[in-house]
């Protein structure tokens, strides 16, 4: 990690200049800061904090005897959590497992892509621009349509499956749609740009002289990557993995369209069906809350372990 200190900064840094300023300036700056935060604060309060409390309240509702469908009474029914956890822990674990595999796959595909555009093609603005547009291009079509398109491509009679069968890469009755493999592929594909772009933004600022220095010091390409490039790009990697993992673990479109009804159900689908189909609002709310907490815990642990100061 010594290399991290390599880019020399002017001694004293920006802090030195600030200290010179008077106290009044500092105070005024502080007030302006708060005023600037205010709209965002109100927004978050109205559209995040309040709904979270509403969600929490709903998750503790109870169904009074004789109540009709969709009728619940406010209560403190903590048993709701035990019930849904008992029934749906496999789906919860599966969601995280799928999201983890998809995140790893997106990292393996996205990092080289970002490296190519940001480092290898540095200076060739036009080519960089074209490749960046290509990375973002899938966003121009709707999420559902893109996933639907994969269904057609991977269909039993589509262009892929017969070829794989002929090459014996798939058994004669093997298939790609309605499998866990298809769901993970769908997640990887759909969230790939979220992985690639933060890493690109980070690698774009990478000082290539550091890589040169690495080879000057007789480090192999891999060693240079491991000790210089990768550590420097960690903020991008962390941002990318978070932006992929969090939405992927709550996703239900991929599992619904590309999965089956046996071993691919993700927690998002369960929440959807508890809410709309069974009209079990407390159960759906409890599951949503559990998902939120679990992600919070996982993400905190992850950022603590791998996070850098630059991220926060």
């Amino acid at each position: 990690m010594n290399v991290l200190a390599a880019p020399a900064k002017p001694a004293g840094g920006p802090g030195a200049a600030e200290k010179a300023g008077g106290k009044t300036l500092q105070r005024r700056r502080g007030r302006t800061g708060y005023l600037l935060i205010l709209p965002g604060f109100i927004f978050m309060l109205l559209f995040f904090v309040l709904p979270v409390f509403s969600l929490l309240a709903t998750s503790l509702y109870t169904k009074p005897p004789g109540a009709d469908i969709g009728q619940f009474a406010p209560a403190l029914e903590f048993g709701n959590y035990a019930v849904v956890l008992g029934s749906y822990w496999p789906e919860l674990l599966r969601s995280f497992a799928f999201a983890l595999v998809a995140t790893a796959a997106a990292l393996l595909i996205g990092y080289p892509m970002a490296y190519l555009v940001a480092v290898r093609l540095r200076g060739r603005k036009l080519l960089q621009g074209i490749l960046l547009v290509l990375i973002i291009a899938p966003f121009f079509t709707s999420f559902i349509l893109r996933t639907q398109a994969w269904k057609q491509i991977l269909a039993d009679e589509g262009p892929v499956v017969p070829v794989l069968r002929a090459l014996s890469l798939l058994p004669a009755d093997g298939r790609l749609t309605a499998t866990a493999f298809a769901v993970v592929c769908g997640l990887t594909y759909n969230f790939l740009p979220f992985m690639t772009l933060p890493i690109y933004a980070n690698l774009e600022r990478l000082d290539t002289r550091l890589i040169e220095a690495g080879s000057d010091l007789y480090a192999s390409g891999f060693t240079t990557f491991r000790t210089v490039t990768l550590p420097l790009s960690m903020p991008g990697v962390i941002a990318g993995t978070l932006l992929t993992f969090i939405p992927a673990s709550g996703d239900y479109v991929n599992a619904a369209l590309l999965g089956n009804n046996r071993d691919t159900t993700m927690i998002g689908q369960v929440i959807d069906s508890r809410f709309f189909r069974v009209v079990d609002y407390p159960g759906a709310a409890a599951l949503s809350f559990i998902l939120m907490l679990a992600i919070l815990v996982l993400v905190t642990a992850y950022v603590r372990r791998f996070g850098t100061k630059e991220l926060i």
Binding site: L50, P51, A57, T58, Y61, D68, Q71, F72, Y281
Partner: peptide
């Protein structure tokens, strides 16, 4: 807006009807 938002997230209105 606030009321319908709360109603959409929770089920404040329905709870009363049940009682």
């Amino acid at each position: 807006t606030l009321a319908s938002m709360l109603a959409a997230c929770g089920t404040s209105g329905t709870g009363k009807a049940a009682q």
